[in-house]
Amino acid sequence: MRWNQLVRNKPFMIGGCLLVLLLGLMVTSLFYTPYGPNDMNTAMRLAPPQASHWFGTDNFGRDIFSRIMEGSQTSFVIGTASVAIGLVIGLLIGAIAGYWGGWMDEMLMRIIDAMLAFPGILLAIMLVSVFGPGFGNTIVALGIMSIPAFARIARSGFIQYKEFAFVKAAKARGASSLRIISRHILPNMASPLIVASTMRFSGSILAEAGLSYLGLGVQPPDPSWGRMLSEAQPFIINAPWYVFITGAVITAMVLGFNLLGDGIRDGFDKKR
């Protein structure tokens, strides 16, 4: 994969631009937001977008733009943390199942199958209702939800690569299993894992928004795009921009990651 090839890839560039923009907002929000995200201004309730409030204000007169900025932190943190959890545990399961095979493989894959049988969001709802809503539990639930996808990709990669001559050669020169897995197999299967990570990232963000919309995810006062969407719902007639803008930002984030993933996959695909 070459950098100049990626630059010419439209999905990659569009997705990348969207994400750079959102990432910029997130980083800025760490130091500065136009208004305090929880500052109320009762004189300016449900104001439409204008020069002083780019995205308008909500029913308490809070600046929507500032709240979106603040909420992006939640999205990025939850996305990163849940993908990390899913990736690490999924890789572990995939490595054990794919590299050693046998009855461990059978057992682990049946568990993964069982997890896949439920729609992801249902699984997350179930986990949150057991552990209780909140920031940390949302991350754990979404992380567990991501495990099956990574475990399956990792398993198929290990099954494929353990038959490669260079892996057998490494075995023949006495390399330990741990070394073979970490130094010889993992780097070679990085591309499908990177693609899956970007896709799961958007899946997690969307699921977080969904959980928070249902009141099961991030709890007040932590800002969240999903909860903003549910708060905006009653005012859909009086203040349509509130719903529309919040929804558009979530869409942009999810679209950005999916396009980026598509682009990277195209770049890794040697046949093109």
Binding site: A165, F166, A169, A170, A172, R173, N188
Partner: peptide, 15 residues
Amino acid sequence: AMIFQDPMTALNPLM
């Protein structure tokens, strides 16, 4: 120690 038939596939391409 062992050396194999096809050296092209017996080396890790990413190291």
